[in-house]
Design a protein around this nucleic acid. Sequence first.
DNA 1: CCTACCGATCGGTAGG
DNA 2: CCTACCGATCGGTAGG
Lengths: 180, 180
Amino acid sequence: MGEILNISRKEQIVDRAAKLFKQKGFAATSMRDLAAELGIEAASIYYHFKSKEELLEKVCFDMADKFITNAREVNDIYFNAEEKLRMAIKFHIETITENQNQSSVFLSEWRNLSEPKLKLFRQLRQQYENQFTIILADGEKEDIFDDVDKKFAVLSILSTINFINEWYKVSLIRLCMISV
Amino acid sequence: MGEILNISRKEQIVDRAAKLFKQKGFAATSMRDLAAELGIEAASIYYHFKSKEELLEKVCFDMADKFITNAREVNDIYFNAEEKLRMAIKFHIETITENQNQSSVFLSEWRNLSEPKLKLFRQLRQQYENQFTIILADGEKEDIFDDVDKKFAVLSILSTINFINEWYKVSLIRLCMISV
DNA sequence: CCTACCGATCGGTAGG
DNA sequence: CCTACCGATCGGTAGG
């Protein structure tokens, strides 16, 4: 029971941390800022997390997990490359729009990670991008996609959909979802 | 003479500041980091600039100036909306690729500005975006562009070309420039 | 989860 | 441009 309360408290802290990291940036957010947001003292956060960086790691790697899990699911379930690409994009957009604060941190604040974790993060992101590269290569084999520079194409696709996070407001509904 | 040396020193400081702000983020860059980069003491920077924020303002507003000047030039010289759009994009890309560090700061670190300047910055950026909106509206009147959501179209265009800053390496030439 | 506190580092100033 | 230094704030710890 204490356990259950504890878990949700941890989640609440991560949630607020993501909000502040997005708003002010990781470096400009102090543990005192975060504590004030939670209505507790800064020292109390250290009962749940051992450092400020651990909070950043949690957000970044949880998001990386979500993205990679989605990509694997796509490659497991769907067969046609066009369908795969469509679903991969759809999952990506859903993940972003359902986790806007965490997505901003994943997209912009990850570089504040320090070294062993920073390298790991880059690897996971690369893994995710590779899933898209594979889909494009499949599509080329299936003769439904042109032979393009895959690395560039993947970065273009991702940057375009990541841009959604800059204008999408939850209140503005899933307008674009309908047409997917 | 001392004046001339002074000016170039100021420019050198701004240049290195932009480099570090891009690399580590504004908040995570200390005046001591910047001083080390310049081979001087932190206190010495305050002979040239009155605060750390002044450095950020210099970078952000110099870039805003460049973008807006470009947009005005386009609207002064060219007549056809398609030509205008093409040139506006070309100037934008040139400005970004020729000032990569400063562009990153302009695109990502501006939110570290504090209040009177932050509002001003947002206004300037809006002014620039409006220039693109006008071009799209002109094109619609000239019957060469479709009737689209202009605000969304402008943000899409800019986010797409701003993405260049994330993969473009100066050493990789002006390959894309050729085709513009 | 709090009080009380730490050493380090920060942006910035005085005086030269 | 430097030395010397400041008050404030930072991330984090001890002990309860």
